[in-house]
């Protein structure tokens, strides 16, 4: 890390740029890179999911915008941006507008906690695993907020279902996380990652000793994300997408 920093400052001073600029940008550049990479990954994953869903259901999937439908998600996001943000009558305006903003906060925080290399983490402190677990439950509060503020019975029911589902599946997640923490005897994500490195490569990962935990974790994550078959809170067929029924435009897109 220090070596990279000195290299960067040296490079800047060679071109006559002050050190203050270097101090600021040294942390900003990787941030930008990570955000761009994240966006690309999201776009790719969404495209792959839509393509596969298309193939499963006898359809072609997106294939009009860009080659192989690559730009379809961008087009959809652009469309949602252009759409009017309707605020229905009778909603709690402050909470209704706050929920989609708050739901975006955990993402940068979680990104800051991920150890990108042994030294490069934005927030590296002794117990950042706990912060990670805590921050991962924030979306459910936002969903409850949105569902409550929407003044819609379907939204409220969807939000309530979501809360009860998260309550049910949060505990197994915490336990599986703790089992990994016990094996690494640390609550620091960097330490846990380093503890898994061995000369046997993949075989040294904690997925093998914690294989049951891995399965539990995978199922619980599906439930946390409200994906099939745990899509009760969003049940299109009965609750009309639940908590985000009243949302439109970009506010609606923020929930995804």
């Amino acid at each position: 890390m220090n070596y990279l920093y000195h290299l960067y400052i040296e490079f800047l001073s060679k071109h006559g740029i002050s050190q203050i600029f270097g101090d600021i940008t040294f942390y900003a550049i990787p941030l930008v890179i990570i955000f761009v990479a994240l966006l690309i990954v999201i776009l790719a994953l969404v495209l792959i999911e839509r393509k596969l869903l298309g193939f499963f259901t006898q359809r072609k999937g997106p294939n009009r915008v860009g080659i192989w439908g690559v730009l379809q998600t961008v087009a959809d996001a652009f469309k949602l941006l252009c759409k009017e943000n309707v605020t229905p009558k009778g909603v709690d305006r402050v909470l209704f507008n706050l929920a989609p903003i708050l739901i975006f906060i955990p993402i940068p925080v979680a990104l800051g906690l991920i150890p990108y290399s042994s030294e490069f983490t934005f927030m590296d402190f002794g117990t950042n695993l706990l912060l990670y677990v805590a921050i991962a439950t924030l979306p459910v509060l936002c969903i409850l907020l949105g569902g409550w503020a929407s003044n819609n019975k379907y939204s409220l029911m969807g939000a309530m279902r979501n809360v009860s589902q998260i309550l049910a599946y949060e505990l197994p997640i915490a336990f599986t996380v703790l089992s990994v923490a016990t094996l690494a005897s640390s609550l620091n994500l960097t330490q846990i990652t380093l503890a898994q490195s061995s000369k046997y490569g993949v075989l040294g990962w904690y997925i093998l000793p914690c294989i049951i935990g891995f399965v539990i974790m995978f199922i619980s994550i599906l439930a946390e994300l409200n994906r099939c078959p745990f899509d009760l809170p969003e049940a299109e067929s009965e609750l009309i997408c639940g908590y985000n029924t009243e949302y439109s435009g970009m506010r609606f897109a923020m929930f995804y």
Binding site: F56, T57, Q58, R59, P229, D231, A235, E236, S237, E238
Partner: peptide, 15 residues
Amino acid sequence: LMDLGAVSPFFYAFR
């Protein structure tokens, strides 16, 4: 099956 939340059988049946 769509009512039950399964989307794919809808497409199969329509095919």
